[in-house]
Design a binder for these strands. Structure first.
Lengths: 341, 341
DNA sequence: TTGTACGCGTTATCAA
DNA sequence: TTGATAACGCGTACAA
């Protein structure tokens, strides 16, 4: 483990000043004679020169790292988002640090602090915190922020939203169009804007048709873990079936939960979709792998990640882009878990 | 976007030298009078001081970032690993950069180069490359490396392996113990040590019982995408069923593929497990959510990540730990997709 | 076209 | 107990 070679080492070896070496090795447009340039280049190769980005950044205050803060990459939705972000980042020679906030505002704060300390200048975040002071300090520090999934009401923060309300409406409407009138909605704790919007879309659609809503909400604090969502789905389904007049269709606030719904029904020998129809929300790939294939609302995760990263890089390149927002539209993925009443 | 305050700003405001400020703010054990210490602390608070880690690292050459290189976090196995790593990293105030190598050695090289440039001192990698020169340069640069999942034959690199061979053996043996003799094995391209080992475990177990192996291998180059594995599973199952004497049990090299196997069978109205038994390999949570629940070999993903990160941090803390390897043992997760013949 | 010299923010060494 | 100063590796005015 010997010390890495620096531009000074090369300068000495090439009998030039370190300034000249720097000019060559940092792809500066500064003119350097062909002879020296070539000598320096070959020497750098030979001596295994690796630029030290710390030094470079300390000087230039440009960072090639972006931070991504999401609740949990155990949730396939967020791992797709992260994957999309990383793909675009990679293509632009940026690197991504992955942070799981686990729905804990304190952890989120901690990550933001770290990001500030590491002089990172771009962040994509699905925020759980309602405290905006951290965002203000990021912006003051020149950090560009893109909010995905969960809206942040704050100037200078661009949003990539998803129309959850419309998604909730669309799913409910679809079940109605298949002749269902007793439509249950199962949801984990309605503690975030996105959850509220889906619920509100459902309520609205029910009201519009003069139907009585059947909502079961888990009060459990969130653990973003596929299995816990699954179990919640089972439990809430059991509750729904315990009602005097059970539903003929069940709408779940996410796909994992829908899997739980289907499982609970199967265990009770209730056939899906012949006896009860099920619709999910997310559109993760796994939905195509279960039996029956899950009809669901597609939320473009991977695309959302790519979009967010593009937007972020644009802003960081100082293109002085107007802070536009994007609202992605829901799409119905009709597969096999819904049948006419 | 005003300039961030530095220790010099605080020094000026407190009428002390920046050295004193540094001693206070970096939690140095160096003695500083109580009065000054408090003045500096409150001033730092007041002036919103955020330490610049670039400066600190440039000086100290200690990094609080680790790199993680895996084929793709779209694969739930690797996102679990990453999650486990990140959890331990977070607890130790480390940050994780996530890299998807997409099974491309060139990309892997590129990431390693970036890691070197960013002066990162610790890496967890599931390597696809057979070229060891990159690892040598990492080690020369003082980067500590932990290889997971895919073995790297190289001194100074600790391994966290999984006994794939035994896993393949175990799965096959289990099917045999249920009275199956015509056992098919479906696998994506056998291009990596892990794949070779599982296959060899299967072959060995078949040979031991004097049974004829039935192997279907996809020759398609790898795209680490859940859906492509799923489709491969379907396709290979179709091939298996086209044989003169089709199998009564199918062993898939990963869970995603097993899902595909089950789907293909269902579409042909072949019941699982009544007509044909299926066993997977990985033990991802989703296996509990499908119908029937997938019997499989558990590979401890999350635990592997945690272990890898702990090991890495130990090494980085210079505990001069002997470079021990860990071989995790397979475990059979008996669920509902296998039935006696 | 080249080199000198400074500063980025921090910590460590040395002297006071 | 404190402070001045020299690094760390790099890029860039400025001067030559």
């Amino acid at each position: 483990m010997n010390k890495p070679t620096t531009i000074h080492d090369i300068a000495r070896a090439a009998n030039v000043s370190s300034a000249t070496v720097s000019r060559v090795l940092s792809n500066s447009s500064y003119p350097v004679s062909k002879a020296k340039r070539e000598r320096i280049l070959s020497l750098a190769e030979e001596m295994n020169y690796v630029p030290n980005l710390l030094g470079r950044q300390l000087k230039g205050s440009k960072s090639t790292t972006i931070g991504v803060i999401v609740p949990s990459i155990m949730n396939p939705f967020y791992s797709s988002v992260l994957f999309g972000i990383e793909e675009i980042a990679r293509q632009n020679n940026f690197t991504v640090i992955a942070c799981n906030s686990l729905h804990d505002p304190l952890l989120e704060d901690e990550y933001i602090r770290t990001i500030l300390e590491k002089q990172i200048k771009g962040v994509v975040i699905s925020s759980i915190s309602s405290d905006k002071s951290q965002f203000k300090s990021m912006i003051k520090a020149g950090v560009h922020v893109i909010a995905i999934d969960q809206k942040i009401e704050e100037d200078q923060i661009s949003q990539i939203e998803f129309d959850y309300q419309k998604g909730g409406h669309l799913a409910t409407k679809f079940l109605q169009s298949k002749g269902h009138t007793r439509i249950g909605y199962v949801t984990s704790k309605v503690d975030r804007p996105s959850r509220k919007s889906i619920l509100s879309g459902y309520m609205e659609a029910m009201k519009l048709e003069g139907l009585e809503p059947l909502v079961e909400e888990s009060k459990a604090d969130f653990v973003d873990n596929a299995l816990s969502e699954f179990d919640t789905g089972k439990m809430l389904t059991a509750r729904l079936l315990g009602r005097p007049v059970p539903p003929t269709a069940i709408f779940a606030c996410n796909d994992m939960m829908a899997f739980g719904v289907i499982r609970e029904l199967s265990e009770r020998n209730i056939r899906v979709p012949q006896d009860i129809s099920v619709i999910g929300f997310d559109g993760i790939d796994l939905g195509q792998m279960i039996n029956p294939q899950l009809t669901t609302i597609k939320q473009p995760d991977y695309e959302m990640g790519k979009l967010a990263c593009k937007m972020l890089l644009d802003k960081m390149n100082g293109a002085d882009v107007p802070a536009y927002d994007i609202i992605l539209q829901p799409e119905l993925l009709e597969r096999g878990s819904v049948e006419p009443r």
